[in-house]
Design a protein around this nucleic acid. Structure first.
Lengths: 358, 358
DNA sequence: CTGAAAGCGCTTACAG
DNA sequence: CTGAAAGCGCTTACAG
């Protein structure tokens, strides 16, 4: 039976034996503690290098009561709900900050809520992570509140008005949604608008819908406005349009709560022979990649997911260090005006879209 | 100064004190060890539940010499090289298997190779993870070899012919590339072909190029074939086409080593007024999302990234458990025939593309 | 059968 | 100043 590669680990003891000191001395020498003389310190550091010493993360975590790890938590239901690209941006933001601090990043999804503790609660309470970034939680997820109340360092991405003690980073979805709806109305003269909302058990879904309503009401167009609840999946954009039946031509503008659904709308109208943006203007939310590559390209609200994640993670580190700071931070968003609303000329183009800060 | 939420953790000791037994007994009771009587066991388990006991992962890791964690390692240079969607699929595959086994997933990128140990080597050697999935490493990355040689459990996604002792899961890139090139030639009569390769310090780049060469040679078209090295980024597709200058019409087919580059080609030809697939057929590799949503949609080789990651992770768990199994596994791929080669009718369509197993 | 010690690998407070 | 013990929270081998 060959050795299956159990590698004997190098410990402080090994270095200590080789140099002829105690493990305590080695520990101190490697931490540049002044009480170890320069000569001994150098000898120890040399030996450590030669033996390829790497401290045991478990022993350190146990002794220091810090895991040296943060968790990025995504409730699974939300993995469906928020597509891949959103999560990717968040991961990129969180992991780059974690890297800068030399801290490991644990990615935790939440396979079964039912069976006992939510997975992420276990992660936190086992002290596998010293803090967590929590994203895209549903409004009614009770475990989130428990986690916040537990006092463990957590920063949430999104808006959670009902969790006033939570530290959050988000964008003003309502204002952004109002702004993009305004754009379809004032810049493109659209008057019969359809909103395909996100799931209404997520604050994002609610806020984007309310922003849409604000805008149509402001312009006195609420009589002709229509709202259909979607789930952020491309298919729910398809379904929403199909549900219009013959009334497809009754609308001349669509504001979808994300780009995936907007793309579903685009495809479905295309097949039905409705011209975009000729007959109908379309706008979405996100700009995580999809919006730029479709034909026509999608006008959308660019959500700075990576930046939100960076800010959240930086704030998390501050909290873990006991530093005070903001409790709610709001990042601004931009309207990216491409072809689907009528701003940019149709056809394959390499022109940059107009960008409006809101 | 308010309590910043340092939460006192519940330990075995707390349960032991409450029930009036020793921590050892509690440990055994919670593990359903038969030597603890049924009554005591129930009392202990009840107390544990009431106190909200969650075992310390650090203490367990130290005692058991297992972290209960696996790492997904992505050398950073490769994060650029392989887009987001690839990594997302890999992450999904790896994390779902890890979840099934109740093991945490650490995501490790590699910020600085220069400064001492590669980040992932630290992760492994500190025993932060019991094993690792390594993806998209460059051929000349010396740390990979060190990691493999260290005997730590590692499974790599991709092909690494020069690392014969490594356990790998991949696809036959060469054959797949030959097959898609064949398709442009035999199904669409293309004879003047351009290949935009991936970076040639990655085996994938080499294999896909060689497959292209196999096919053009097989058909006696090597005289008119052209190869440009790209980097898997959309812009290198743009650059490759622009580099043709006036000879754009000299080619009638493009095989790009991934979809991002194929999309760069598509955009650039579109702007130049070259019809796709009318004048030029285009094919890519990946099918991670982009290929389906462009217009025309992209014909491509579907790489089962999520499945590769699942298999790699399952194999990793087997290795960690000391179970024997395959050392190299090859998953088959499919040609997805959409609009950019000429197989599917142009325009917005909801038809499913033809799929060919190769 | 059961009680309690030893030890995983660290760091630092304490004794000398 | 320096040596070495204590202790983080577990699990299991060992002593009784």
């Amino acid at each position: 039976m060959p050795d299956r590669g159990r590698v004997r680990r190098v410990t402080l003891r090994d270095i200590a034996d080789q140099v002829g000191v105690t493990p305590s001395a080695v520990s101190m020498a490697l931490a540049d503690h002044p009480r170890i003389g320069a000569d001994t310190r150098k000898a120890i550091q040399k030996a450590a290098r030669e033996l390829g010493y790497v401290p045991s993360s478990a022993a350190r975590a146990l002794r220091n009561q810090r895991a040296g790890t943060i968790a990025l938590i995504v409730p699974t239901t939300a993995t469906h709900v928020f597509g891949h690209s959103y999560f990717m941006h968040v991961l990129e933001g969180a992991s780059s900050v974690a890297n800068e601090r030399d801290v490991q990043l644990l990615v935790s999804t939440n396979p079964d809520n039912e069976h006992g503790l939510a997975a992420y609660e276990r992660v936190m309470r086992s002290h596998s992570a010293d803090g967590a970034i929590l994203t895209s939680a549903a409004i009614d997820d009770p475990t989130v509140e428990r986690l916040i109340d537990s006092g463990l360092p957590v920063v949430m991405i999104g808006n959670f008005p009902y969790l006033s003690s939570a530290v959050t980073v988000g964008v003003d979805d309502r204002r952004a949604s109002g702004a993009i709806t305004d754009h379809l109305i004032t810049a493109h003269g659209r008057t019969r608008l359809l909103h395909i909302s996100g799931p209404l058990d997520h604050q994002t879904g609610i806020d984007r819908r309310d922003g849409f309503l604000d805008a149509v009401t402001r312009h006195g167009l609420e009589e002709d406005a229509l709202i259909v609840e979607g789930d952020f999946g491309e298919e729910s954009g398809v379904t929403a349009v199909q549900g219009l039946g013959d009334r497809k031509t009754a609308i001349d503008g669509v504001v979808a709560a994300n780009d995936d659904m907007a793309f579903g709308v685009l495809r479905t109208l295309g097949v039905a022979g409705v011209a975009v943006p000729g007959d109908v203007s379309i706008a979405g939310f996100d700009d995580f990649g999809l919006a730029r590559v479709t034909s026509p390209s999608l006008t959308t609200v660019r959500v700075p997911a990576q930046r939100l994640a960076r800010l959240a993670t930086e704030r998390l580190f501050a909290i873990m260090a006991g530093v005070d700071g903001w409790q709610h931070h709001e990042e601004s968003v931009q309207l990216v005006l491409r072809q689907s609303c009528g701003c940019q000329a149709p056809g394959m183009t390499t022109d940059e879209p107009a960008i409006l800060n809101v």
